[in-house]
Design a protein around this nucleic acid. Structure first.
Length: 197
DNA sequence: TAGAGGATTGAT
DNA sequence: TCAATCCTCTAC
């Protein structure tokens, strides 16, 4: 399947629902003519209404300004000085919501991804937000692009049943207090490519 | 303008 | 359990 994801998905519902609906979709990147792609198996929702979010209370900064573009834009930032995080901006322009893509199941370009990861096996090369960005050659040059750009796009893939989706609390945001306990991490049940804590 | 810390990862 | 690594944000 290579149907592009309808842009309406990113603006027509709340960010947690969109995070769930992104499971099974396909991320495709083209870097120096090389195509890589993977099924989304893990996501996290971030809403301007809670403390875990870079755009909490809709506060715009130099880093997060892309989050305030219309849903369907690409938000990439550098974490811990070395890892790039891939996010899908959601909601209408002016509202800072986004979905973090945390893990992929590789489809195309597996040999290239292994090479980029210095891996001798295809094992777990995209199981984690920093890893998948490196494997798919995603960096801050993608920040502010729209999904559908020649470098990065989202396509329809597999449709998951409700029973195949697990919701848990998000990872690595203890600073968010009670909001850290929101069940806004979604993953594909029993999928080997989900990141492990 | 200085200082603290982070939506992670991999090695010890 | 801890270091790597650098950009961003906050406070002064």
């Amino acid at each position: 399947m290579s149907l592009p994801v309808s842009p309406e998905l990113f603006v027509k519902s709340d960010v947690a629902r969109i995070a769930r609906q992104l499971l099974g979709k396909v991320v495709v990147t083209v870097h120096q003519g090389v195509v890589t792609s993977g099924l989304i198996v893990e996501t996290e929702a971030y809403s301007h209404r809670e403390r875990g979010c870079h755009a909490y209370q809709n506060k715009m900064t130099e880093r997060n300004k892309v989050m305030f573009l219309e849903g369907g834009h690409v938000y990439v930032y550098l974490c811990y000085g070395m890892h790039h995080m891939l996010n899908v901006v959601t909601n209408r322009a002016g509202v800072g919501d986004a979905v973090l893509i945390r893990a992929l199941q590789p489809l195309e370009g597996i040999a290239v991804m292994m090479e980029r990861m210095n891996a001798t096996a295809a094992d777990r090369i995209t199981s984690g937000p920093g890893k998948l960005a490196k494997a798919m050659a995603i960096d801050r040059s993608h920040n502010g692009l729209r999904f559908g750009d020649s470098a990065i796009r989202l396509q329809e893939g597999e449709t998951l049943r409700r029973s195949q989706i697990v919701a848990t609390q998000r990872i690595g945001i203890d600073y968010a207090g009670a909001d850290a306990r929101l069940p806004w991490r979604f993953y594909w049940k029993d999928n080997d490519w989900v990141s492990k804590k």
